[in-house]
């Protein structure tokens, strides 16, 4: 066991973790933030995507111990219904960018990361950036629209 210090959705925490504990399991089971999902546990599907120091990472490919000293944002820290939805969440709702919802938190985190880098992405740029996040339900058509929707909302906010 080792002690780590981590800021979780803006709140500083000190937690004891086993060396081999995956960041994903730490988030879901120790922090009880179950919005982050396990899709493959081998880094291929992106369902477990979270932001670590603002960068999208796959929490199934990291140990919790590696997040020591970091700032972690999960889907629960992004925004919530009814009055604090993030524009990306709004976009997914408006454009029907989700069906079963299982890949959705990871998809939203990856989209936030994308828009932070590129506030006005093209269709191709969205598809390229989200190619590492697998969705089995939507065929991605409405996910692309959802990201455009969020990007447009972001531009409106700035003008």
């Amino acid at each position: 066991m080792r002690e780590i210090e981590i800021t979780v959705n803006g709140e500083r925490r000190r937690e004891a973790v086993e060396d081999r504990r995956l960041l994903l399991d730490f988030i879901r089971e120790d922090l009880c933030l179950t919005g982050t999902h396990a899709g493959c546990e081998h880094g291929a599907c992106g369902a477990c995507t979270v932001l670590l120091d603002g960068q999208a990472v796959r929490s199934c490919l990291m140990f919790a111990a590696q997040a020591d000293g970091s700032e972690l944002t999960t889907i629960e820290g992004v925004g919530s219904y009814p009055d604090r939805l993030h524009p990306v969440q709004e976009g997914f709702w408006e454009e029907h960018g989700l069906q079963c919802g299982y890949c959705t938190p990871g998809m939203i985190m990856a989209s936030i990361d994308l828009l932070a880098e590129n506030p006005s992405p093209s269709d191709e740029e969205i598809r390229e950036r989200l190619a590492g996040n697998i969705c089995r339900c939507t065929g991605y058509v409405n996910i692309v629209r959802a990201v455009h929707h969020a990007a447009a909302a972001g531009r409106e906010d700035q003008s």
């Binding site: 009880c32 933030l33 219904y81 919802g101 939203i108």
Partner: peptide
């Protein structure tokens, strides 16, 4: 009518409840 889904607020907020979330 393309009514927006009532399922979505919980799912986009990370508050879906799947079997794997049951404790």
């Amino acid at each position: 009518a393309s009514v927006k889904r009532v399922e979505d607020p919980r799912l986009i907020g990370g508050h879906g409840r799947y079997v794997t979330d049951v404790e």
